[in-house]
């Protein structure tokens, strides 16, 4: 009973916050509502005894990704008014499509109820985190390594994309060039003739013109 109440409370909060994410005028509000959505779904996940992922969601998403979002949104100077243009124009189409997708999914669930098969009998005596840990480091050890490489890739790409080597303020030193310098490269003796001034008489005007050669 209590579970049902909690489910509906969290569900309502989740749906409302999700709606606010897409409807809020200010992107910062969107981000904050998204955080709320994540936290609420984390609560729902805990109701399903998936505590490790629920915590990961909060730690990774709310703690890292959403803060990153918030940071970006605040950093960028966004003209909210132009961003909202076409919102009302798009609303009918968006509603239509969203409702069609929803209707389809719900109809699938209603007309073809999922038969629950007992595939693997999980041992309830072991906690969810423990089970997940076992699986991750035994059966899924290679995918875990792959995931770590993907994360590293994300890190490198993010840095590489935002790095600005062409910036005027950036100063570089080419060590090899500095070491390989020679005397002749430093000083060059140049012989220059003194500048001469030639006088040409412009016959039409009768004026003297100075032409430097």
């Amino acid at each position: 009973m209590l579970q049902t109440v909690f489910f509906y409370v969290f569900s309502v909060i989740l749906v409302i916050s999700a709606l606010q994410v897409i409807l809020a005028k200010n992107p910062i509000h969107s981000v904050l509502f998204l955080i709320l959505a994540f936290v609420t779904s984390s609560c729902l996940w805990i109701m399903l005894n998936v505590e490790f992922l629920a915590l990961t969601l909060i730690l990774v998403y709310v703690g890292a990704v959403m803060v990153l979002f918030l940071f970006v949104v605040m950093m960028l100077d966004i003209d909210i008014e132009t961003m909202r243009k076409g919102f009302w124009k798009n609303l009918p189409l968006a509603l239509c499509l969203g409702l069609v997708v929803l209707a389809e999914m719900v109809m699938v669930l209603v007309t073809k109820p999922v038969v629950v098969y007992q595939i693997t009998q999980t041992d309830n005596s072991i906690s969810n985190s423990n089970q997940l840990g076992w699986m991750l480091y035994t059966k899924y050890s290679y995918p875990v390594e792959l995931a770590s490489v993907i994360l590293l890739l994300g890190l490198v790409v993010a840095v590489a994309l935002t790095l600005r080597p062409s910036s005027k303020n950036a100063k570089y030193q080419n060590i090899a060039k500095q070491v390989a310098v020679s005397k002749t490269g430093r000083i060059e003796m140049v012989k220059m003739q003194a500048e001469k001034v030639e006088v040409i008489v412009d016959e039409k005007v009768g004026k003297d013109k100075e032409v430097s050669v």
Partner: peptide
């Protein structure tokens, strides 16, 4: 739970359509 997730999915689709100009959203 499945219907809840379907609602979330539909909302996000709507979000993509509604905020066509705002890439952050």
């Amino acid at each position: 739970f499945l219907i809840l997730s379907a609602i979330l999915f539909a909302i996000s689709i709507m979000g993509i359509f509604l905020n066509r100009k705002n890439i952050i959203v």
